[in-house]
Nucleic acid binder design. Structure first.
Lengths: 210, 210
DNA sequence: TATTTTCCGTTGCAAAAGCAACACATTATG
DNA sequence: CATAATGTGTTGCTTTTGCAACGGAAAATA
């Protein structure tokens, strides 16, 4: 039913065609890009991990999205309506392809293969974003830190098809992702262990309930 | 820069073409539709108000989205990954157009005008959803009830281009939308009045800070 | 219009979450 | 390798939030 989309081929096309692209390498903790109003940038994470981070006026930090290899991001997927700063921060050494559009929904004059593939698949790619966003909203609407943690773990477990999985975040960052206080989250994590819901070995979580 | 899209004409095209459509009328509190996995339904709210509501396993109710006249909704805009029930509930008498797709991104055999307009504009329509979802996430990541209220009010104020505006929700529903306890929200609302942040006359809020 | 239902506003109390501080472990870096 | 920076784990205390309950207002309904 879903339009299958070969991201590997897409990236190859991208790398081999379009003139306006740019490839850059970043080291850990560098700012990959800042989201800017009325710019349409499409970015592809060729390698590494990065987070989309928002800083609000109170200085609170929120991890809005987490990107790993082959993730697509940029203003193309985030029409900006906030005044807060939106940064993409490299969590490890990263390689990123950049492309800036005038109008993302129209092909370039050259009519290159990349653009053709892109405009054909963009709707589906955006729809994938919508799915992610809806899952995130479901997490954030949970009323307690415990439910947020369990909800997030269950999501990771479903993705990995296993009750045992690595956290893609440090615990500090996980708190920023779930939008809760870190020490309160650590306390709840301890209680989840004591109550027999989870086991935790380093960065690995094992879900003990079905 | 943005593709402008005439929703009124679109609806007229819809009403006049495509065979598979259905028009239904609902009274207040009726269930307009239930979201079903692997179905692609597109719904247009011709008149009235409705909410997309999720009930979780603890019985908590969350208002996921609020729809008013001309809103588009349905599984087309919500790839389902949750096990929770997703219902659209009529908040007033409603008139709704329904259409079910096999594949939303491809035109129907008849190649009717509606379908042409739809497939041309769907990416932009989905992108509008993304914008809404990102705003909602920004609200939900705020750490306190106070910040959620102020954030939501400031959003409504920006939309209406005025510091004075009607709430589209009852206060009970507003709490379900912000994902907080109603009585705690009422308490915070009182404090916001006492601290001179807002005035509240019936359903109308006036923001007193710039 | 009388009656039922829903919503608003409030409160006391209990539970959860946030804040701040600290020691220790682990990981980067000169 | 020494040192600095960052992340983990913990705790006491304060603040915020949730829960439950209730009376009255407003709205829907018979």
């Amino acid at each position: 039913m879903n339009t299958k989309f070969d991201i590997e081929n897409f990236i190859t096309d991208f790398a081999n065609s379009c003139q306006k692209k740019q490839k850059k390498v970043f080291s850990k903790n560098e700012v990959v890009t800042t989201y800017i109003k009325n710019r349409n940038q499409l970015c592809i994470l060729l390698d590494g991990n990065a987070d989309l981070v928002r800083y609000d006026l109170n200085g609170n930090r929120t991890i809005v999205e987490h990107f790993s290899k082959n993730a697509l991001f940029g203003e193309v997927f985030y029409t900006i309506t906030t005044n807060n700063e939106l940064l993409v921060e490299a969590k490890s050494n990263c390689t990123v392809l950049f492309y800036i559009y005038d109008d993302i929904f129209h092909k370039c004059r050259n009519n290159c293969k990349f653009h053709q593939t892109l405009s054909e698949n963009l709707p589906q790619l955006i729809l994938n974003k919508v799915t992610d966003l809806n899952m995130r909203i479901e997490l954030l609407t949970k009323r307690s830190t415990r439910d947020k943690l369990l909800g997030y773990f269950s999501l990771l477990s479903t993705r990995k098809l296993s009750t045992s999985f690595e956290l893609p975040f440090s615990l500090t960052d996980l708190a920023d992702y779930l939008s809760v206080d870190r020490s309160a989250m650590m306390r709840e994590l301890k209680l989840l262990k004591e109550d027999g819901f989870i086991e935790k070995i380093g960065n690995r979580i094992i879900l003990l309930y079905k």
